[in-house]
């Protein structure tokens, strides 16, 4: 049976958090889509709140604790990522960005990503596209076209066209399609791979 791994990063700070709730809904929908296609999905959920001190320590010391290292490994070796942050002051939360800041700049290359965000009002929904999408684009991840924003009012809306459940379903379908084609989790990366053309004496030194 084909297997894909899905990492889920939730940057919600309260417990329970609506950010985690959105992450769970997106995860469930994505797993359903893949399962329908006969693909087994291994899900690993990472609550950044549990790693808050470890992330700060990594920023200060330059290395991850074993717990954070495991989380980074789960994200960077996944076939797909669901990344959900609360919107604070018109953008991603500081904790969410700090987590991304301790990831190796090339470690998310080609990673299918579904981005989501939560907030008090609908007015911040574009933060997904002006703040969060560019970060993953910079990291050469493949961001699904549909990003899902859930305002407080969305949790009480009826299941009509254009509502939260429909957006979740569309986004999950996009991520599932990208994950189906991904072979990232089966790739073996060589941490000591030398750059192409590297010579230990340089271009001129061997003269």
């Amino acid at each position: 049976m084909t297997t894909r791994t899905l990492a889920v990063v939730s940057a919600g700070l309260s417990q329970p958090s609506s950010t985690r709730l959105l992450a769970d809904r997106l995860t469930e929908a994505t797993v359903d889509r893949l399962t329908e296609q006969g693909i087994e999905v291994k899900v690993e959920v990472i609550e950044l709140r549990d790693l808050a001190h470890d992330i700060t320590n990594n920023l200060l010391t330059g290395f991850p604790s074993p717990k954070l290292d495991a989380a980074l490994g789960a994200v960077t070796a996944a076939d797909g990522l669901i990344a959900v942050t609360p919107i604070f002051t018109t953008s991603y939360s500081g904790l969410f960005k700090s987590f991304l800041d301790v990831i190796e700049p090339t470690a998310l290359t080609d990673l299918p990503v579904l981005i989501g965000a939560t907030g008090g009002t609908e007015r911040h929904s574009l933060a997904l596209d002006y703040a969060i999408r560019p970060v993953f684009s910079y990291l050469h991840a493949v961001v699904a076209p549909t990003a899902v924003y859930a305002a407080s009012s969305d949790w009480g809306s009826a299941a009509a066209s254009g509502t939260l459940p429909e957006r979740i379903g569309r986004a999950a379908g996009e991520l599932a399609a990208l994950m189906r084609e991904s072979d990232r989790s089966s790739q073996v990366t060589d941490p000591f791979a030398l750059p192409a053309g590297f010579s230990p004496v340089g271009g001129f030194g061997a003269q």
Binding site: S199, P200, V201, G202, G203, F204, G205, A206, Q207
Partner: peptide, 25 residues
Amino acid sequence: IPLAIENYALLHRLWREDVVDWQGQ
């Protein structure tokens, strides 16, 4: 990295060869 590689390639020769002709980047 290229500086470390090229500069050492020269340093290595300067200590081992009495007369050095050299060109680098």
